[in-house]
């Protein structure tokens, strides 16, 4: 099924980057305004899905040589790992820590272990969603 969609492809090239930026923004915004790990993961996944739909599978696979199964596994590992990480500090399972730091130029920023947990969630969501779509569509 080869359809020459020049307009679609051109738009996609542009839009994918906007979506990716949005995803990154949503990920970091998540703690204080709408957004968060799940949403960021889904938005990222939809960017990839868009690429896979517009271009053919091989092109994208060459351009993004990622094994999304491994990404999903890494995500789940991170999420579960932060839970066990709490043991190292002698606090109950999954206890998260946060603190505020004064950084020149940026002002006060907040560093929290939740970010790692959220990153795990994001990676897992991206990995799983893309894996699902890819494995169904690849099977001809």
């Amino acid at each position: 099924m080869k359809i020459n969609n020049v307009i679609l492809r051109t738009v996609t090239k542009l839009v994918v980057f906007i979506i990716l930026t949005l995803a990154v923004y949503l990920f970091f915004a998540g703690h204080n305004s709408p957004g968060g790990g799940f949403i960021a993961g889904l938005v990222l996944a939809s960017a990839f899905v868009l690429l896979f739909i517009v271009y053919d599978m091989e092109t994208i696979k060459n351009a993004i040589p990622l094994d999304f199964k491994k990404i999903a596994a890494l995500g789940a590992f991170l999420a579960v790992g932060t839970g066990f990480g709490a043991f190292l500090f002698d606090v109950p399972f999954l206890t998260q820590a946060f603190d505020y730091f004064q950084v020149p130029f940026f002002g006060e920023i907040e560093l929290t272990t939740v970010t790692i947990f959220e990153a795990g969630v994001t990676l897992a969501v991206v990995g799983v969603v893309v894996t699902i779509i890819l494995s169904i569509s690849e099977d001809v």
């Binding site: 995500g75 579960v80 897992a124 969603v129 894996t131 494995s135």
Partner: peptide
């Protein structure tokens, strides 16, 4: 997240 992973691996 673990359930998601299982679902993904299941589909795969």
């Amino acid at each position: 997240v673990v359930v998601l992973l299982i679902a993904g691996l299941g589909v795969y």
